[in-house]
Structure formats: structure tokens, C-alpha cells
Design a protein around this nucleic acid. Structure first.
Lengths: 217, 217
DNA sequence: CAATGGTGAGTGGATACTCACTCATTTCTA
DNA sequence: TAGAAATGAGTGAGTATCCACTCACCATTG
């Protein structure tokens, strides 16, 4: 599957960061992620994880002492490494290329970031489902993600508002429309396995029109 | 809570339809729904259900023989009674009032149907979370919901396309944009408990602009 | 040998589900 | 109509199973 590469890449970061992670532990993480994505966290047993990882059940518990720690270990790299990089790289790119139209901004978001999300569809899937149910995880995630988006995306939005490229709506609403459109597409294509390329143009046009500024009265 | 009335209403329908459902069984259903919505299906024990319903654990199993049957019983009225009515009433209303602009259509969808969804937020919540994880349930639901939407919404869209009130995009895409925008708002406000009234106008404007037809070249 | 990774049988607790019984209401019968 | 019988919702202690987690032991490497 196309997903495995970037998932591996995400884990690679953790491996590099926190010393060596032995191969079997990596298999445990990979298997956990896959099973959590397929069945959900609560419906996955540690025995299943061991089997899919080709490992004894005790091995599952060698490094991570509880099943919850395993979930955290699977999600952590995404929220602490991948997501920040995602947002910041994007902001940097936008600033560097001096996008002054929402068309350029939206195109960048859709083609670049949506593809990225779809590459990481497994983690995204687990994250979305668990955020819906686990209050603690949701708060923790929002506490990290929201300020990050605010700090990096909002200035850009303000800038575009100033030049009449965006309507004078609250930033959180604009962000919600963009994110909502992306996530709904993401979820849909995570079931139909359709590539972004086919839908991209339509989403761009829809967002571009939807976020057009109201005629100045 | 504002939700309880319409939830009760949904159960009322089933009660009326399939003979008498004794009061304690109704308490079991209500408790199940509430707990499933709060914690998710897999994280809810039958003991918890019994306690919240003020009932012995055996009572939980009198009518519904398994926990899965209980989930089905909680979701069934929504997909078989409420959702069809939701869609058909909407379609009927639209046709009756002869909406010929997308503004009227979108306004109707947002103010009317979104409020309805938020009234049924508990069932929606359970449905959404379980659809993400349970393949069988998802297929079953889509097999019912998709044709219903196609039969009732698509003709209206075609009609509006004909009079240049909608762009010539595939119907499923237009539907996705509308549904995605609504659901993302629904999920957000199911956490922040903000009323629809405040966001409605913005969503309407966003969708109306986003779904404006491209200038005929 | 020390240290670290790996093993898998075993354990305690939780949980979905059962069943023999009670009790109230309804239906049958003399 | 009084009493007997049947019905079925409700009960809660009990059971079989499952599952997260442990631990005493083994293997490999430096």
C-alpha cells in the first residue's frame, strides 16, 4: 500500500530521535497502527497485535507497559513531529512564495496537504476515531493543534483579508470550512480509495468560490 | 437537554410501530444510547447500562439477546424511520415551495436539517463513530442512505443545474460539499455546544458562493 | 558474565451472557 | 365470581470466556 512509506517515515523520526528501537518493536508499532485503523483501538486485542507483528505477546509489553501507552506511541509522532512540520513547512512555503491570492493558497493546501494526509491515512483514521470518543485525548490534541494552526495559518488569512482576497469572517470559520472540506474528502476516499488528483480541481474551485470576499458595499 | 425530546420521539415511533415496549426496556434503550454516545459502544459495559437504566442486568438481555442487537436497536429507528422521513419531507417541501434558487435550497438545508441533526446529536454521534470502524454496519447504512439521497436530492440538483443555479458538477460531489460542511459544523458544535443560529448565515453564504455556477464560457 | 531483547504459559479481574426463580397481571375454569 | 393456571417482565447471583498484563526463563551480543 502507498501508505506504508510515509507511516514508516513517521516512525523513522521517532527512532532517530530517541535512540535505537529494535526491529521487533517497530513491527509491534506497525501492526498496532494497522489494526487500530482497521478495527478501532478498543476492538483490537494485544494477542492480535502480537500475531500480526510475528512476535510473542510478552514482546508487545517489553517497551510499552500498557495498551494505552501503545496508542500514545502510535499517535505521538503524528502530533508532535509530523503535524507541526506539516503546518510550519506549509506556512514557510506560502510566505516564501508570497501567495497573494486565495487561489494560490487553496491550491497549495489541497494538492499538497491533502495528499499528505491521505498518505498518512492510517494514523489519521485512528486519530479521528479516538478523538471522537476519548475526552482526554481530544483536549490534549486540541491544546497542541489549535495554537499551532492559529500561529501559522491565521496571519496568512489576515494578510489575504487585507488585500480583499478573503471575506471578513472569523478565522476559525474560514479554517473550519477548509478543514471540513478536506476531511470529508479524506474520509470518503479512505473508503473508496480514489486518488486526490481526480477530485482536487473541484475542491479547489468550490473553496475558492466559497471563500470569495463579499462585494464591498 | 434539548436532545432528549427528539430522541424520545424517535423511540416513540418504534414503540408505536411494533406493539408495546415495556417502560424498563425503554429505559434500557435510552441508557444505552446515552452511554454509547458518551463513551463509544466498545467502551460501554452492560453493567453500566443496567445501572443507568435503574434495572437489573438480566433485564438488559430480556428483549435484545446480545449487546450488538442493542446497538442495532438503538440505531435502527434512525436509519429506517427518521432519516427517510428527514430526506423525503425535505424533498417534498422543496418541491412544494418551488425553490428555484440555490440560495433557497441551501438556506432550507442549513436552517432546517442541520437543526434536526443537532437535535438528534446522540444518535448521530454513535452512528458516525461506529460507521468509521464497523465495516458491516457501514455497508448496510450506505446501502440504505445513498439510494435515498440519490432518489430525493439528485433530481432537485439536476433541476437547479438546468436553470444555471448550480455548476455542472457530479451530483455526488455537490452533495459531498453540502454534507461535509454540515457534518463538520455538527461535530464541532457537538463539542462546543454552540447553537446553529450563530453559524448558520456564514455557512449559507459559504455554500451559496461555493456552489455558484461557473460563468458560462 | 552482564545487559538487553525476546518468549509464552500463566493469572487475576472484568465482562458478556445465562438461568432458575419471583411476582404481578391476565386468562381460563367450575 | 372465586380460585386456579398461565404468562411474561424482571431479577441478580452465577458462569464461561476473554483479555490485558506478568514473570521466570532463554538467546544473543559486547
Amino acid at each position: 500500500m502507498a501508505t506504508e512509506m510515509s507511516i514508516q517515515a513517521a516512525f523513522q523520526e521517532v527512532m532517530a530521535a530517541s535512540g535505537e528501537i529494535p526491529p521487533k518493536q517497530q513491527q509491534v508499532l506497525t501492526a498496532s497502527l494497522a489494526l487500530f485503523a482497521e478495527q478501532g483501538f478498543a476492538n483490537t486485542t494485544t494477542k492480535q497485535i502480537a500475531e500480526r507483528a510475528g512476535v510473542a505477546e510478552g514482546t508487545v509489553y517489553r517497551r510499552y507497559k500498557t495498551k494505552d501507552e501503545l496508542l500514545a506511541a502510535v499517535l505521538a509522532p503524528f502530533t508532535t513531529e509530523v503535524l507541526p512540520k506539516l503546518v510550519k513547512e506549509f506556512a514557510a512555503k506560502v510566505v516564501r512564495q508570497k501567495y497573494t491570492t486565495r487561489h494560490a493558497l487553496i491550491t497549495a493546501v489541497i494538492t499538497d496537504r491533502l495528499a499528505f494526509l491521505q498518505d498518512n491515512s492510517q494514523v489519521m483514521r485512528v486519530l479521528v476515531t479516538e478523538l471522537l470518543v476519548r475526552t482526554d485525548l481530544r483536549e490534549q490534541f486540541l491544546a497542541r493543534a489549535v495554537p499551532m494552526v492559529q500561529a501559522n495559518l491565521y496571519p496568512i488569512l489576515d494578510q489575504l483579508k487585507a488585500v480583499q482576497e478573503l471575506p471578513d469572517w472569523p478565522n476559525d470559520r474560514i479554517a473550519q470550512f477548509m478543514i471540513g472540506t478536506m476531511v470529508s474528502q479524506f474520509i470518503r476516499s479512505s473508503f473508496t480509495a480514489e486518488p486526490v488528483a481526480t477530485v482536487g480541481p473541484l475542491m479547489i474551485q468550490f473553496l475558492e468560490q466559497g471563500l470569495a470576499p463579499e462585494p464591498t458595499a
